[in-house]
Write a protein that binds this DNA or RNA. Structure first.
Lengths: 126, 126
DNA sequence: CATTGTATACGACTTGTTTCGTATCAAAAA
DNA sequence: TTTTTGATACGAAACAAGTCGTATACAATG
């Protein structure tokens, strides 16, 4: 029953994105942030966050009237989970194919490329 | 109304995976392949593939009693779609972060690493 | 104290996905 | 020709996600 297999939905990921960024946020914080790109009512966001709380994805500080939410899933674990799944179903198990896709279609700065190169050098040494 | 915005579900991706691999397959082919890792009845797979046909995700050759299905979404386009989405929602828009994640957690062979290195060299030149 | 504004709780509706039972059809086997 | 086998079609149930209306609580303000 660990957190490992909790798989956030699309909307839950959007909320988590905000929580990861801020560390902690109220429903209104999150809702305002999401409103920039999406239009759903306040109670929709509220309900979603309540459900996430039930599922154990976020923790809730109820000490004041206005609850504060914080993520329980780490960004890293979640990234790992999704990347793994994606490599399996979409890239025939080959991480390098995913890498080529990502680098080929989405620009990265010279600095980022340098960093990746460093990582590759490291991996090759082992 | 292009194919661009068709977003395959989890189950649809599994079916597409088989179709991409084989180029063309019957419902039974697909179902047998999926049975290895999943247990759902034959008619479930059938229905799913019929719906995919309605949605325009696959084409269907009905010239013989046993229909043959083939993908209409390309693997590349679909990969691109999902990778893009993922970079946005999970990697703050940074492709290199996704790359680091993928390389860090999932082994790649020396040959693959070489290939990636070549790609990076190319990208740097521009 | 009454009103207003801002919260949470909760139930219910809508839409989409997955599942499967059953009907039907056609070709191959008996 | 009758039966059996293997295929598609189709409807409906089960489930899940997302949406929102409304009830209710409470504190700040008038």
């Amino acid at each position: 029953m660990s957190l490992k297999q909790l798989k956030p939905t699309e909307s839950e990921l959007e909320i988590l994105r905000v929580l990861w960024e801020r560390g902690e946020a109220t429903v209104r914080d999150v809702h305002e942030e999401l409103s920039k790109t999406k239009d759903a009512g306040y109670t929709t966001t509220l309900k979603l966050m309540q459900i996430m709380h039930e599922k154990g994805m976020v923790k809730r500080d109820e000490s004041s009237k206005t609850h504060k939410y914080a993520p329980l899933l780490s960004r890293e674990k979640t990234q790992k989970q999704f990347v793994g799944k994606m490599i399996d179903t979409l890239f025939q198990g080959s991480s390098s194919q995913l890498v080529m896709q990502a680098l080929g279609n989405h620009k990265a700065s010279k600095e980022e490329l340098d960093e990746i190169q460093k990582l590759i050098d490291n991996l090759k040494q082992q």
